[in-house]
Design a protein around this nucleic acid. Structure first.
Length: 552
RNA sequence: GAUUGCGUAGCUCAGUCGGUAGAGCAGCGGCCUUUUAAGCCGUAGGUCCUGGGUUCGAAUCCCAGCGCAAUCACCA
């Protein structure tokens, strides 16, 4: 039938591959009688489970029986008494990631989320159409295979297929079978390929799922109630960030994607929920880099009658517990673990999550980094000029303190030890509650791990008059651009007037935490579908395969 | 937003001093009943990211743009 396809169309190279696969699809359906897109299959087991079914005794018994039968046949004797095949039978499905055609024997590897397993298809042991299917199947096709679990001569555990059918024909050109997809751009844009071509990718997202589920169990066990608050908000509050804007047609009403759930969670506390949390997707219309994606997942926690110290204990216990569970996972996976405690690798670092985490006051760290007292503004400004901060004269005293802190004190934090920096100056945290004993500082901490800021916590402000005053002051400072999305949330102030109990509040960047716990260098490695610029015009968003549907 | 680097076949990558494009895998046609990135024979496949410029001649040099990455700035 090859003669029937002369070079009439001179198709693009990409569609040559696709066209070949379409031709196969047609052949599978019309000549071999397989539905190329499969149907429901009951009784499937994951590939790892099928592999675990392998029994050396059953395999040996079967080999011996086969040899007897073969010898008898060769000698022209009558067939020996048939021995029942004791090998366990498995029905499996997976994507073809290796395919070796030996003529009358075909070896291929299937892959699913649990791993790879070889399937061996002998022409003598299977229907002709199934054999032809296995022989002609392409990398990337999804097969359903049933048969006894045995071994090959080289010791590879495999399913000796007695039945093969199609789960789905893949029309797309597959990635390189040995190197997989390594171009980071292609991995992000075609994550669905990355996920099967690079098993490490799939593992990270499975770990992420377990981490999030452990976080929920931890919070639930401590009596916190998980709630869901609006993503679409008429006023984007709770953080200082630029929001995405959108619009509700029926209400003809401008809306913002939330930048934080804070003000709604506090309303929940006004309503009587004492311990609440939300694992929330936030959206911030800002820059993108290794630790920032425009939409990101955080957990916010509020505990009535707690404070920032309550939140510190909770955070420390939670992160410690997560680290311990990750160490256990690594151990179970056969990776070497530090015998001395919960230590996890992150790039070149080995981060030690042993309790207690380091605690250091802002003021003390500032003194260590700069050699001056942060309240001695003369000395602070002198230091600023000394290190070449040219715009020092234009800044408020406390802003100079803040900049010097970031430049000279933050680098002193040991990236290998989770560290709480506590008691920030009130002036740089305008919405936080000042300390009762020292109004110059406020009850806030930030936790740093691996050089990244993973989250802040506060003793929350619950005096409606102070809150209103602070909001108003903040609005005055907003420039024209900001004022288009900064609005006073009067309803929130009204809620505080109803009365919110004193509380501790916490925010943890889940993506960053997952990066740390899974040894991922970029936030894009822990977000399934990170935002990328679209290529070409609108709608031309995807790469490579977008031509396939229109050709052939 | 700034700086630097990268962009070559579906994928992974070579491409020397500027002389008109290469390999492996994948594909296609064969052979092969124990392979482990299987092997062997044959074959096809290119907008060298895009657009300008320099040059007799550009994948290569220059300029601009697009995309990605790293670093910085901002933020969580």
């Amino acid at each position: 039938m090859a003669e029937t396809t002369p070079q009439d169309a001179a198709p693009l190279s990409e569609s040559e591959i696709v066209a070949a696969r379409r031709a196969k699809l047609k052949r599978f359906r019309d000549e071999l009688g397989f539905e190329p897109y499969g149907q429901r299959v009951d009784g499937l087991v994951p590939l790892a489970d099928a592999r675990a079914l392998f029994s050396e005794e059953a395999h040996a018994a079967h080999e011996a029986a086969s040899k007897l039968a073969k010898d008898a046949k060769a000698a022209g004797a009558a067939a020996p008494q048939e021995v029942p095949d004791a090998r366990p039978v498995a029905k499996v499905a997976g994507r073809i990631v290796q395919h070796r055609d030996m003529g009358k024997l075909v070896f291929l590897f299937l892959r699913d989320a649990t791993g790879d397993l070889q399937v061996s298809i002998s022409k003598a042991a299977i229907a002709a159409n199934s054999f032809e299917l296995a022989k002609a199947a392409d990398y990337g096709d999804i097969l359903v295979v049933e048969g006894p679990v045995g071994r090959t001569q080289k010791g590879e555990v495999c399913v000796w297929a007695t039945d093969v059918s199609l789960g789905a024909k893949s029309l797309a050109a597959p990635p390189e079978k040995w190197h997989g997809l390594s171009d980071p751009e292609l991995r992000y844009r075609r994550r669905y390929v990355d996920m099967y071509a690079n098993p490490e990718t799939a593992k990270v997202f499975a770990m992420r799922a377990r981490i999030v589920s452990r976080i929920r169990r931890f919070m639930d066990a401590r009596g916190f109630l998980e709630v869901e608050t609006p993503v679409l908000q008429p006023i984007a509050g709770g953080a200082a960030a630029r929001p995405f804007t959108t619009h509700h047609n029926a209400l003809d009403m401008p809306l913002f994607m939330r930048i934080a759930p804070e003000l709604y969670l506090k309303r929940c506390m006004v309503g009587g929920m004492r311990k609440v949390y939300e694992i929330n997707r936030n959206f911030r219309n800002e820059g993108i880099d290794r630790s920032h994606n425009p939409e990101f997942t955080a957990m916010e926690v509020y505990e009535a009658f707690g404070d920032y110290g309550t939140m510190m204990e909770l955070t420390e216990s939670l992160i410690h517990e997560l680290a311990v569970s990750m160490v256990a996972e690594r151990q179970a996976a056969g990776l070497r673990v530090d015998p001395n405690g919960p230590v996890l690798p992150w790039g070149d670092l080995a981060i030690d999550y042993a309790k207690p985490f380091v605690r250091v006051k802002f003021e003390e760290l500032f003194r260590r980094g700069t050699g001056v007292d942060m309240r001695d503004f003369k000395a602070v400004r002198a230091k600023a000029r000394e290190v070449g901060m040219h715009h020092e004269a234009k800044l408020d005293d406390w802003l100079v303190v803040n900049e010097l802190f970031e430049e000279l004190a933050e680098p002193l934090i040991d990236p290998c030890r989770p560290t709480f920096v506590t008691d920030y100056p009130s002036a740089v945290s305008p919405l936080t509650r000042p300390s009762r004993t020292d109004p110059a500082i406020c009850e806030r901490w930030d936790i740093f791990i691996g050089g990244m800021e993973v989250g802040p916590a506060y003793t929350e402000l619950n005096d409606p008059d102070i809150q209103l005053a602070k909001f108003t002051e903040q609005l005055k400072g907003a420039d024209d651009e900001e004022s288009t999305f900064r609005t006073l949330d009067e309803d929130f102030v009204e809620a505080l007037r109803v009365g919110m109990p004193p509380a501790g509040g916490l925010g943890i960047g889940i993506d960053r935490l997952v990066m740390l716990l899974t040894d991922s260098a970029s936030i894009r490695d822990v977000i399934l579908f990170p935002l990328l610029k679209s290529m070409g015009g609108p709608g031309a968003g995807d790469t490579a395969t977008d031509a396939e549907g229109t050709k052939a």
